[in-house]
Design a protein around this nucleic acid. Structure first.
Length: 116
DNA sequence: GCGTTGACGAGGA
DNA sequence: GTCCTCGCCAACG
């Protein structure tokens, strides 16, 4: 196999898996995923990994992944920045000023709902 | 090969 | 409670 595999780490694979496991109408944070994977201090890498998600199939529901503040920080990387908010609203999540309302209620922690 | 940036978060002052 | 700094790993210039 090719040694120069762009994505081969279990970490990246796990990130995609966790994001896909996010229930509809729920959201999570990069740090939550990182913490779940044991990389709480590597939240940045989670975001970078999500950047590669654009080439991943099936498409990663990245719109369900926001920062710790519930802010749609990644919307700028979407095909259309407004798409992210529309997707969230379509799932019953209220977004105000690019921020999720009642974020705490919609927050979905993989380390609590999933079993490591 | 080195320096900076990047979808972030936590800890310290 | 708020502001600043460091960490983490990878890719880009």
């Amino acid at each position: 196999m090719t040694k120069t595999m762009p994505i081969d780490f279990n970490f990246t694979e796990a990130v995609y898996d966790v994001v896909r496991l996010i229930p509809k109408g729920k959201v999570t944070s990069y740090g939550a995923i990182g913490t779940y994977l044991g990389a709480a201090r590597s939240a940045r890498m989670v975001g970078w990994t999500m950047n590669k998600a654009h080439s991943q199939v099936p498409a990663i529901p990245a719109h369900r992944v926001v920062n710790r503040q519930g802010l749609l920080t990644g919307k700028t990387h979407f095909k259309t920045p407004s798409k992210m908010q529309e997707l969230l609203e379509a799932e019953g999540i209220i977004v105000k000023n690019d921020q999720i309302v009642n974020f705490k209620e919609h927050f979905w922690d993989p380390s609590k709902h999933l079993d490591l």
